[in-house]
């Protein structure tokens, strides 16, 4: 029997505003979760690339008259491997060097007699400029003219990409939160203006602003909670679907690593409820204070 239910629907017929709030919060949470998850996956990928290029360097042994570059490369590799920071030093074969130089030189037309600089690939334990400087000095003492080539320019670009990706990953949800706050403030103001006679009556029947605000907050809590939890689950399902889509793209496949984003995504409902409660509270108190004055 309906008469037995609690008397709590003080403000406005609830359904329309609750459904609107549910969809608005749900959509915003979903977009925020997708943006955050995608950003974190990108950051993870960038970190992987950075780690990969940081563990690699190469030694270039230029052609010098009277020196066999291949023998010099072997010497440089042995010298490098004596260094504890070098895991492996592998001189490249002439075919491998030709393949690397192919974009710049028409290597097919090069005769066997054309001497190419030698290259030694190094696998490093840590990327440290000072350690690398010591390493190259050490090698140069045994093989003069050795040049160490690192990937500093790429590392810098990747660092920059990482910073921007992180900024976007958290900035977009931040912007969404700002829009959500604005929408909530506006919606609460509109709802209260529309409910003015009811609020006046509630005041006359002995309701304090806090009592009315509490009723308003109750109204927002459940739709916000449901919408944000559902939206986050939907975002997790989206990442799961992407991971299982078998696209063959390594970046998309990283979506299978839930530990990268799941923890952060779990914060989306918490943040959205906090934002909703705080913004609704501010809006309610402001609207009620304005109504009380008039």
């Amino acid at each position: 029997m309906r008469s037995a239910r609690l008397t709590k629907q003080w403000l406005l017929p609830a359904r329309a505003s609750s459904i609107l709030l549910f969809f608005a919060v749900g959509t915003m949470c979903y977009l925020a979760a997708i943006s955050l998850g995608t950003g974190l996956l990108l950051v993870h990928a960038v970190d992987g690339w950075t780690q990969e290029i940081s563990s690699r360097a190469s030694l270039r042994i230029d052609v010098l008259e009277g020196r066999d570059t291949q023998i010099a490369a072997q010497q440089a590799a042995r010298a490098a491997e004596r260094n504890p920071n070098v895991i492996r030093a592998a001189p490249l074969s002439r075919e491998e060097i030709e393949a690397i130089l192919e974009p710049w030189l028409d290597t097919e037309e090069l005769g066997e007699e054309f001497e190419l600089p030698a290259i030694v690939n190094l696998r490093l334990r840590v990327y440290d400029k000072q350690v690398l400087g010591n390493l190259v000095n050490e090698i140069q003492r045994q093989v003069p003219g050795v040049v160490l080539e690192t990937h500093d320019a790429w590392r810098e670009r990747l660092e920059q990409t990482r910073r921007w990706t992180l900024a976007v990953a958290f900035g977009v949800p931040g912007l969404i939160a700002a829009v959500a706050i604005t929408v909530m403030l506006l919606a609460t103001h509109v709802v209260f203006t529309g409910n003015r006679p009811v609020i006046e009556l509630l005041h006359l029947l002995g309701a304090r602003n806090g009592d009315i605000a509490r009723a308003g907050r109750k109204r927002t809590f459940v739709p916000c909670l449901c919408a944000s939890v559902l939206a986050t689950l939907l975002a997790l399902a989206t990442f799961e679907a992407v991971a299982r889509a078998d696209t063959g793209h390594p970046l998309l496949e990283t979506a299978a690593n839930r530990e990268i984003y799941a923890g952060w995504l779990a914060l989306v409902p918490v943040a959205s409820i906090l934002i909703a409660r705080i913004s609704v509270r501010i809006a309610l108190i402001r609207s009620l204070a304005r109504l009380s004055r008039t």
Binding site: S3, T7, K8, Q9, V198, L201, L205, G206, D211
Partner: peptide, 23 residues
């Protein structure tokens, strides 16, 4: 000054609900 979206029961009970009493 009755609240149109509340039933007769709810309108009558309103002052008690406002006072924070349980139904």
């Amino acid at each position: 000054r009755l609240i149109d979206h509340m039933s007769v029961y709810e309108n009558i009970a309103l002052p008690r609900a406002i006072a924070g009493e349980r139904e």
